[in-house]
Amino acid sequence: MSLTDILMQQLVNGLVLGSFYALVALGYTMIFGVIKLLNFAHGDVYMVGGFVGFGVLSAVGGTLGADWGGIAVAMFLSMIAMGCLGVVIERVAYHPMLAAPRLSILITALAVSLVLQNSVLTLTDGQITAFRTDLGFGGLEIGHVFITYNQMVLVGTAALLMIALETFVSRTQYGRAMRAVSIDKDMCRLMGIDVAKVIAITFFIGSALAAAAGTMAGAYYGSIWYFMGFLIGLKAFTAAVIGGIGSIPGAMAGGLILGLLEAFGTQIPGIGSEWKDVFSFSILILVLVFKPTGLFGKSETERM
C-alpha cells in the first residue's frame, strides 16, 4: 500500500469515528446552549442507549433479523427511550438546580453520570456484553481502499440525522425557539415561548442522538460495557469545544475533525494508536489555549 492508500483508508476510518463523536457532541452542545450546563452524564446516556439498543435487538432480532433492518428498529426505539430518559434526567436532576450556582448543577451532572454507570455496572456485573449482529464484512474496494457496507450505512445514517437536525433547527418554530432560548430566556418568555418545554425538547433530541450513536457503535464494534460512555463523553466534549461550544454546525464539524485527526494521528511515526487519546486531549488543550471560542463560536463582547 502506498502512502496515499493508507491516508485514504484512514480518511474512511476517521469519518466513521467522527460520526460517532459528532452525534454525541451535538447533544453536548445543544444542552450547553439552552441551560449552559456541561452535561457530563451525556456520555452515559450514549452507553445506556447502546444497552437499550442491544436489548431491543435481542428481542426483535429473531423475527426481524439482526442485520441493519433489525438494528434500525433497535436504534429507533432506543432513541425514543433515551429521549424520554433525557427529559426525566432534566426534570428530576437539573431543573431544580437551574437557579442554583453553576457549580452545583455541574456536580449534579457528575452524580447523574455515576448513577447511570453504576446502575448498568450492577445489572451487567461489569462484564463486557457481546453485541451480536448478523452484519457481514462485505464492502467495496476502491483502488486499494476497502470500505465496508457497514461503514457506509453508518456514516450515511449519521449524516441523515444531522441533516434532519439542521432542518429542524433552522426551519421550524421549535428549532428557532431553541436558538432563541440559548440567547435570552427572559425575552423568550415575553415572546410567549414556554422555555421549560423547549429545554425538555432539547434534552429529548440530544439524548436521542446519543442513543443512535450508542446503538450503532455497539453494533459496529460488537461489544458494549458500562464504562464505554466515559471516554466518548470526553471526546465529544473535545469535539464540541473544537467547534465552539453551543454551536450546532460547530459540533458536527468538531466531531468529524477530531475523528479524522485521530485516524491520521495514528499514522504519524512514533504516535501509534495507543497514543491517540493523548493526541486528542492535546488538541483540546491547544484549542482552549489558542482559540477558546472554537471554530464556530462567537466571542462574547460585553457592551458598556
Binding site: F168, T172, Q173, Y174, R176, A180, M187, M191, G192, I193
Partner: peptide, 30 residues
C-alpha cells in the same frame, strides 16, 4: 434585547411562537 446571531426575520418569527399550533413532533417530522 434582540436575539443576537439570528436574522431580523428570524427574530420576528420567534415572536410568533405563541401563535403557532404545530407541535414539536410535527416539527421533527416536518
Amino acid at each position: 434585547r434582540l436575539f443576537r446571531e439570528m436574522t431580523v426575520l428570524e427574530n420576528v418569527m420567534a415572536g410568533m411562537h405563541c401563535r403557532t399550533h404545530a407541535g414539536a413532533f410535527a416539527a421533527v417530522f416536518r
